[in-house]
Amino acid sequence: MPRRPPRAVAVFGTGRAGQHAIRMLLDDEMLDLRAVGTTDPAKDGVDAGVLAGVGETGHTAVHGLKPRDVGGEVDVILHCGAASRDELADFFGDAAGSGIDVVSVSGGFHPRTAFGDATCAELAASAVASGARLTGTGVNPGFLLDVLPWIVSSLVRAPASVHARRTTDMKHWGSTMRAKIGFGDGPATHAVNDLLSLDESLALLAESVGVEIAEMTIDVEDVVAGSAREVHGRRIERGEHCGFIQRATATATGGRRLTLEWVAVLGLAEEDGVGDGTDVTVTDAAGRIVTAHVAGTHDRDAYPATVARAAHVATLIAGLPPGLYGANLQPAA
């Protein structure tokens, strides 16, 4: 079978995810890097390879670059920049109007939850008209706390409950994201469940397993350090606030229950007592249980896997009809 020609790709965003994407694409046989956009004016005109730590590539970052600016030059955009839901909807709309596919790691995993029914209808219609495909993906959200529990639940004919929990180390996060939720140099500017809400993952899982949500709650509690540590120049003493547990729960009218937990700790240590990796447990009405565990380590960085998943989808999404897609409708192979 002949190999498909590589798709021309642009990377939007030059933070940690964007830098990983640039490095990966320089050696990718299926995606050909053509353009790089940045939201940081200090990076305007800087070679993308220099920003990514790999030397000159000939591709310079352009501040304020929009999808319409690369219309006709690229087939797909990897959206790697931090964005609010309104900003991402505008970005999707611009790309759809220009006939360019978008795979975002910043949201849009469950479009109806992210954008609302009216905006979704507009985006889908624009994408179909122009031949574009729009979606969001990643490791978390986009896989470990939504797609993976859905796949595991398929091993049980009628799941009565699904529980998934992921524990991560914030030391690998970008400084901007850590600062916004209060783990940088100053006070928090955003609540955890506003900036990193599990509502899209919960809605995607419920839709995938056929649960009609009657009630949804999202709570956040603090994690205190079980041992002293210093991370990125910040000293944390034993007993001090060092992370959070975000818990999202959905209950159906018939009593079926879905629970997702995201644990994030700065300088994760065994003494914190919150575990490691990702665990999924699915139980049926008779009490039969199916479990899955994805091992993690305290030093694991999820950014390369996030970008790799986005690139995988960006390569294969060309085989789908134009439209707006959730993470549960993306090609897997």
Results as ranks from 00 to 15, higher is better:
95 A>T: 06
322 P>K: 04
135 T>W: 03
40 D>L: 02
321 P>Q: 04
173 W>M: 11
132 A>Q: 04
77 I>L: 14
308 A>T: 07
169 D>Q: 06
29 E>R: 14
222 D>P: 06
23 R>K: 07
77 I>R: 09
100 I>K: 07
174 G>H: 09
317 I>T: 04
88 L>H: 08
151 I>L: 15
43 K>A: 10
161 S>T: 15
204 L>P: 05
138 G>W: 03
210 G>I: 06
247 R>G: 07
330 Q>T: 15
281 T>E: 15
57 T>D: 06
98 S>A: 15
21 A>Q: 08
322 P>Q: 07
67 P>A: 10
329 L>A: 15
128 V>H: 04
262 W>M: 13
72 G>F: 13
267 G>C: 07
223 V>D: 05
148 L>I: 03
27 D>T: 14
40 D>W: 01
138 G>D: 04
177 M>R: 06
226 G>Y: 01
289 I>C: 09
137 T>A: 13
39 T>W: 01
224 V>L: 14
96 A>W: 09
324 L>D: 02
123 L>I: 11
51 L>Q: 03
287 G>W: 10
118 A>D: 15
294 V>L: 13
30 M>S: 13
154 S>T: 14
186 G>V: 07
164 A>V: 05
292 A>R: 04
276 D>Y: 01
224 V>A: 03
57 T>I: 11
328 N>A: 14
12 F>I: 15
267 G>D: 01
52 A>E: 08
29 E>K: 12
249 T>K: 08
88 L>R: 09
160 A>P: 00
240 E>T: 10
139 V>F: 12
119 T>R: 15
168 T>M: 10
63 H>K: 05
160 A>E: 12
279 D>S: 11
303 Y>C: 03
218 I>N: 10
116 G>E: 14
173 W>I: 03
154 S>D: 06
150 W>L: 00
231 V>Y: 01
134 L>R: 05
147 V>L: 14
225 A>N: 04
285 A>V: 14
291 T>Q: 13
6 P>I: 06
212 E>S: 13
163 H>A: 12
110 H>W: 11
289 I>F: 00
246 Q>M: 15
135 T>G: 07
99 G>W: 09
278 T>D: 04
109 F>M: 08
219 D>C: 02
287 G>T: 07
173 W>N: 02
251 T>Y: 08
192 V>I: 15
245 I>A: 10
225 A>R: 05
240 E>M: 10
216 M>Y: 07
54 V>I: 14
127 A>S: 12
220 V>N: 08
14 T>C: 05
190 H>G: 00
262 W>D: 14
136 G>L: 03
97 G>R: 04
102 V>P: 04
191 A>T: 08
308 A>W: 03
28 D>C: 10
188 A>E: 05
18 G>T: 01
30 M>I: 02
45 G>A: 09
238 R>N: 10
24 M>H: 11
75 D>Y: 09
136 G>F: 08
324 L>C: 07
46 V>N: 01
119 T>S: 13
103 V>F: 11
46 V>M: 13
28 D>W: 10
41 P>I: 09
267 G>I: 06
239 G>D: 12
1 M>N: 03
151 I>N: 00
90 D>T: 11
59 H>E: 05
193 N>G: 01
235 R>W: 01
176 T>E: 13
20 H>Q: 10
115 F>K: 07
306 T>L: 08
265 V>P: 04
304 P>R: 08
324 L>Q: 03
238 R>G: 01
183 F>V: 05
178 R>N: 14
180 K>I: 00
299 D>V: 00
167 T>N: 03
